[in-house]
């Protein structure tokens, strides 16, 4: 399962239960993010032991994209089906700020940080 845009790719690795985000996501509005949100919801529909969203290779996500990610987290919080891990890049300030907020939206989100390869 994957979605590719001009400047980004989003690929689900079913061996690691991880959605790998890559590139720069600066789409025009939340409507344009609907396809990505639906992709994440489709992955979440699979009966996984956990879901990891890995943003280490993402340079930019605009405010509409951050809002989409928050909406997804609030949606899966309601379902409470599996633990969600968000892996960020320790070198990128917006990721540190943004992913700390995800924990405020749902305290069961686990936030980890690493570095891009």
């Amino acid at each position: 399962m994957q979605i590719k845009g001009e400047d980004y790719s989003i690929v689900f690795d079913d061996k690691l239960n991880t959605v790998n985000f890559n590139g720069s996501l600066r789409l025009e509005n939340m409507g344009e993010y609907n396809a990505i949100e639906q992709f994440l919801l489709d992955v979440h529909e699979l009966n996984l032991p956990f879901l990891n969203l890995d943003f280490k290779e993402v340079e930019f996500l605009n405010s509409s994209g951050i809002a989409m990610l928050c909406r997804f987290i609030m949606d899966v919080k309601k379902q409470n089906k599996m633990p969600v891990i968000v892996t960020g890049n320790d070198d990128i300030l917006w990721q540190k700020k943004s992913f700390a907020n995800l924990k405020l939206l749902w305290d069961k989100v686990e936030v980890k940080f690493g570095r891009a390869q």
Partner: peptide, 13 residues
Amino acid sequence: KLQSFGENDGMKS
């Protein structure tokens, strides 16, 4: 504002 998106599907955030 982020929490309000859970209830409101506005196109412009």
